[in-house]
Amino acid sequence: MFEARITQGSVLKKLVEALKELVTEGNFDVSSTGLTLQAMDSSHVCLVSLTLRDDGFDHYRCDRNMAMGIHFGNLSKILKCAGNEDTITLKAEDNADTLTLMFESANQDRISDFDLKLMSIESEHLGIPDQDYSAEIKMPSAEYQRIVRDLTSIGDTVLISATKEGIKFSTSGDVGTANITLRHNTTPEKPEEQTIIDLKEPVALTFALRYLNNFSKATPLAPQVKLSLTKDLPIFVEYQVGDLGNVRFFLAPKIDD
């Protein structure tokens, strides 16, 4: 059987809200080491990889590996019924066709359970290579969200260029053009407000803003986001979810014809 309990149930609510528009369905792969999900968007342009470690949960038990096919829109409907302060427990018997979600209020005076119907999903697992990136940028997640949101109102694609001067986001559209440059900034006292640029070599890549904007739905999960860039490779956008794990997004670049 599988059982995972998390006192801070709001984290699960935020996770599903972050993913549900990008991926309509996918498999929660559960094992003794935790819960993972790998899924592509419907146009196969980007990949989402979620890792939640067993020791990040308040209680975790998984007797045998299972792939639980989840429709994220439906999971979102159920999680919207959980209070922000609720403890959430996920439960499934071996080979079950439902996932039980149990919500307990902070003072234990309200307990509810919902069964989510599971799906059978054929999913292709992609191998994500470990690699060194030409540029790694850590910045406040709210800053990333603001940049991609602002640029989405001007253009469809963004040229991200990392140089010694900083990291520049450029777009153009019917109304005109926009450039936003961020510089290395470690002066804020709080580490989560700092911008740290680690540049091995200059790099410039073009991406569809629609997806970068969609990734920023994970902003409530983490104060910082990390962007990693290498020439001719997908951008890697990572949010650390406290001690629980991480959400990683990979977006294939636009390539000049």
């Binding site: 191998g127 073009t206 569809a208 997908p234 990979f250």
Partner: peptide, 14 residues
């Protein structure tokens, strides 16, 4: 003009 690449052309199936 530019073309949107697919993610699977970078990460192999496994």
């Amino acid at each position: 003009k530019s073309t949107q690449a697919k993610i699977s052309s970078f990460f192999g199936g496994g």
